[in-house]
């Protein structure tokens, strides 16, 4: 299997799908001439021309709304948001139009739209540029919400998203773009709503997604030296949420830690923990632990930022607590 970066996995999948399907077109700020803030769209303007690779003004409400209209008329637009924080001016379009128009039209229209870009914190971007919006978007029926953690899943989930009939919130992570990994070639897809057991273990289930998956795996390595075997589950997709895979694992390990980068209240970890209690309360030998970001706006200073978000040692400590 060839190796490539998360960035290359995204870019090559866009290219393959644009070659295959003329309905796919790209919109976003500085995706064309500038070639993309994170260079996911490098060379694509030259390859496909300005009708298919549209440099937009800084006008998220406008161009995300327009992309929804394009999708309703049968195109398959892919919007790049420079970061997911910039999707908030367009939240009305995404939540009130894209997520619901199929329903309130009685099934007369589809919105095959992908909105993709980096989500989350960790690179000293301070309060307005470090948010994780998965539970915000995950709250709304009608949307699909995915958060790949590896180059292979970035490829497989993006291809699924590009061929889907629904609006997809595609959450990448800036800290992962340069990450290398094996990536299956050709028509590789990962279906929505399928979590993956990425490291088997008998003692405790650690549930994570996106960048947090790699911290969970590092914590699992550390704990293995103490003789603790973590089973690490990558959710990959927040909506639909694959609680079956999580519950199956917890029934084997009887203990669970759920990790998220975002704030604790009403977060994805609360949802997963509740799902564990609902499905396997009697299998649990300890209360479910959550490891989350601190309940503060993201600070700029490096030392404060490190305190504000989960790291390997906090995950390892949570694992030790559920094992006590």
């Amino acid at each position: 299997m060839p190796e490539m970066t998360y960035r290359e996995a995204l870019r090559s999948t866009l290219v393959e799908e644009m070659d295959r399907d003329p309905r796919v077109l790209l919109l976003g700020e500085d995706i064309g001439v500038y070639q993309g803030t994170f260079r996911i769209t490098e060379g694509l303007l030259e390859r496909y021309g300005p009708r298919r690779v549209i440099d937009t003004p800084i006008s998220e409400l406008g161009f995300i709304g327009a992309a929804i209209g394009m999708a309703m008329l049968g195109l398959r637009p892919v919007v790049e948001v420079m970061t997911w924080n910039f999707s908030l001016p367009a939240a009305d379009q995404i939540l009130q139009n894209a997520a619901k128009v199929r329903y309130f039209s009685g099934g007369q229209v589809s919105v095959p739209l992908v909105i993709r870009g980096p989500n989350g914190a960790g690179v000293q971007l301070s309060a307005q540029h470090s948010q994780s919006l998965e539970s915000f978007y995950g709250h709304f029926p009608g949307l699909r919400v995915v958060a790949p953690a590896t180059p292979a899943d970035a490829r497989g989930l993006l291809r699924t998203a590009l061929r889907a009939e629904d609006p997809v919130i595609f959450l990448e992570h800036a800290a992962l773009y340069g990450m290398r990994g094996p990536v299956p070639e050709a028509d590789y897809t990962v279906p929505f709503g399928q979590a993956a057991v990425v490291r088997p273990g008998r003692d405790v289930t650690v549930v994570a997604y996106s960048r947090m998956l790699h911290l969970a795996l590092a914590a699992a390595d550390e704990l293995a030296q103490e003789g603790v075997e973590c089973e690490v589950v990558d959710l990959r997709c927040l909506r639909p949420l694959d609680m079956d895979t999580v519950a199956e694992s917890v029934r084997r390990t009887h203990r669970a830690v759920v990790v998220q980068e975002q704030w604790p209240l009403f977060g994805a970890a609360a949802e997963v923990a509740t799902g564990i209690y609902e499905r396997c309360f009697d299998d649990l030998d300890a209360p479910v632990e959550r490891v989350t970001g601190e309940d503060v706006p993201a600070p700029y200073a490096r030392n404060l930022e490190k305190l504000a978000f989960p790291d390997e040692s906090r995950i390892a400590q949570a694992v030790r607590r559920v094992l006590q």
């Binding site: 409400l61 327009a66 929804i68 209209g69 309703m72 195109l75 009305d92 139009n97 128009v101 039209s105």
Partner: peptide, 28 residues
């Protein structure tokens, strides 16, 4: 809505459907 007659709908948020129409026009 009546998409069979080109009616892409009524919308309840004031101004919220205008960007959709611009995108629809581009698509055409």
């Amino acid at each position: 809505f009546d998409v069979s007659r080109g009616n892409y709908g009524g919308y309840g948020i004031v101004g919220g459907h205008i960007p959709l129409a611009v995108g629809a026009a581009y698509a055409l």
